[in-house]
Design a protein around this nucleic acid. Structure first.
Lengths: 202, 202
DNA sequence: ATGCGGTAACTTACCCTAGGGTCACTTAAC
DNA sequence: GTTAAGTGACCCTAGGGTAAGTTACCGCAT
């Protein structure tokens, strides 16, 4: 903890402090949601006061957007890379999960920012989050289509539903993981492999 | 809508008005979360003002608890009844889904109250919600255990994870359903049957 | 080496509004 | 005329947002 420094201490360069604040913000927004999170609490976590937070990010929305863009871009890039590698449709879900777990091992709340229901219904945040969700949903839809056509189930609305359920599965796996900090990405991936094997009879 | 009545109109009996307010509250809390929902907005939906809401429910927490208890008891009772009927482990998930869809066809937001991350971390609401979740999780755990032991997968931690994923699946199905008001409970159940058939190769 | 400005990091103390919560009152119905 | 349904107008606090100042560091000229 940066702590008990005298007033006016220079502290650390802006870039580094911003990174700290984005990490703290991601955790707090992820935990309590946009509406439930408090700016002073986020500042306090880093050992700094609110005005600095506002100087760097302008507003609560500004901070949220910074957190959201970091989470969203890392997520979409990671998933895009994994999907681009291709492979058996049956194997894709596990590969994608593995990529997500590895990327967010030390940042487990990030995923939740894209699916926070408490952000204002209109505005920059809603638009940005919807955009990231749209991109991820497109991947999910692609994966679901490949998986289902390989099994002769082709109703497009069913496939939409499957894609959404898939994101819900990721959601709940991450929530479960958040509550078990000792389980690392590799263990989590292995667990999912085992579970899917058992459930789908592979 | 009860609308444009003159001031001081007797209106309707308390019981009926309370029921309306609980319905409106459930929708608003479900949509925006505890932290994001506004009491005046909930009153406005019913065509009434805030003081009446407070006279009947005492506080925001009081209203939330009323909504939560209605949702939670209906849910746990419905699931308990369905689980008590017994049947093939493979068939239970669909039976439970069917019960949930039927019970909440006209009250689709109710499910979300049990899983709202924006309620204060301590206090009556958190305790009550945790209790309902605990009961539902126990059913999920039971179902997951039966399903998995029938397939020779017995790691208890894996089963915990499966149970949690199951609740996440319900969550995302309901979210998907909320966005498609024309799909009724029967259609939703049929869709799930089709999807599970395709995915699990039944 | 020292003093001295400029700048960047950071704070204290404040403003302002949204929204939770209350009071005193009005009117319809029996 | 008593009671229950309902209201307009208010209070108060939490929390988003800001203004003005304080201190440390760095580069530089002497």
């Amino acid at each position: 903890m940066t702590e008990s420094r005298a007033v006016g201490t220079k502290g650390m360069p802006r870039e580094e402090r911003e990174a700290q604040l984005v990490v703290a913000g991601t955790e707090e927004f992820g935990r309590a949601g946009y509406a439930g999170a408090s700016m002073v609490e986020i500042a306090r976590r880093v050992g700094v006061t609110k005005p600095l937070l506002y100087q760097y990010f302008g507003s609560k929305d500004g901070l949220y957007l910074a957190c959201l863009h970091r989470a969203g871009s890392r997520l979409t890039e990671g998933v895009a890379t994994t999907m681009a590698e291709g492979g058996e449709p049956d194997q894709m879900p596990l590969k994608v999960l593995s990529a997500i777990f590895t990327t967010f091992d030390h940042d487990r709340y990030a995923w939740r920012l894209l699916r926070d229901a408490t952000v204002p219904a209109t505005g920059d945040i809603a638009a940005a989050a919807a955009d990231y969700r749209r991109r991820l949903d497109a991947f999910a839809l692609l994966g679901a289509t490949q998986l289902m056509t390989s099994r002769g189930l082709a109703d497009p609305v069913d496939i939409e539903a499957i894609a959404q359920v898939w994101t819900g599965v990721v959601d709940s796996l991450i929530s479960w993981w958040i509550d078990r900090p000792d389980e690392d990405a590799a263990a989590m991936t292995a667990r999912c492999a085992r579970i899917m094997g058992g459930l789908f009879g592979w």
